[in-house]
């Protein structure tokens, strides 16, 4: 079977949170994505057994949501917002700079599996438009130049944990609001870093 005991143990813990098994489906799909960088057919089979539904039911759900990826993602998922507040604040130039730096078109992943680029809808950072997420960690008030700097940094430093506050301090500009609280938690995969699915990571300073 494709999931090891450690992963299965996490899966069972998640299932226990809910009155009905199937509710754990979403979080379990994140585990699958953490494992492989996408939702593999093997993981679908595994999950279908865990929550007692058919494989195609799992697939039906996973393919509905944008954050579950059908193809393998790179280490860093660059999600650039193109919705209205960002659009009118020139998100196009941020998109173009990412495209230029990575050579990727929308939804593509480079050969080294370093970057995946996607244009996304509003990520709730409209006051800090244009905004970007790296592995679901938000940076606000980007410029094309800062965007390229950020990509370069990712490429050279290859940080293991992406932390929104660190990105923002290094590369960000105008924010949607004062973030105020110091924070060094983040995510290490192309899934949101979050305690309940065991993906929240703390960065040592």
């Amino acid at each position: 079977m494709s999931w090891d005991n450690e992963l299965l143990e996490r899966a069972h813990k998640i299932i226990e949170l809910y009155p009905q098994k199937r509710s754990a489906l979403g979080p379990l799909l994140y585990l699958a994505q953490e494992k492989d960088g996408f939702i593999s057919d093997d993981s679908i089979v595994e999950i279908s057994n865990l929550v007692d539904i058919t494989e195609v039911q799992v697939k039906s759900v996973s393919s509905f949501y944008s954050m579950y990826k059908e193809e393998q993602t790179g280490t860093y998922l660059l999600s650039v917002c193109k919705s209205i507040s960002c659009e009118i604040n020139d998100s196009r130039s941020v998109i173009n700079s990412v495209k230029e730096f990575t050579g990727l078109e929308n939804y593509e992943t480079d050969q080294d599996k370093l970057f995946t680029f996607e244009e996304v809808e509003c990520i709730g950072a409209c006051g800090g438009a244009p905004a970007v997420q790296v592995n679901y960690e938000t940076v606000e008030g980007l410029t094309p130049e800062k965007t390229i700097e950020m990509c370069e940094w990712l490429k050279n430093d290859k940080p293991e944990i992406i932390v929104a506050d660190q990105l923002q301090n290094k590369f960000g500009g105008t924010k949607s609001f004062d973030w105020a609280i110091e924070d060094n938690t983040g995510s290490a995969y192309t899934v949101p870093g979050f305690q309940n699915i065991g993906t929240a990571k703390e960065k040592d300073n």
């Binding site: 058919t54 494989e55 195609v56 039906s60 509905f64």
Partner: peptide, 22 residues
């Protein structure tokens, strides 16, 4: 009661399909 055929994707990309191995 044997849901082996389902909607995949969403919105305008929605399609009916089965699971590859099933």
């Amino acid at each position: 009661g044997d849901p082996l055929i389902e909607f995949i994707q969403r919105g305008n990309k929605t399609q009916v399909n089965t699971f590859p191995d099933e």
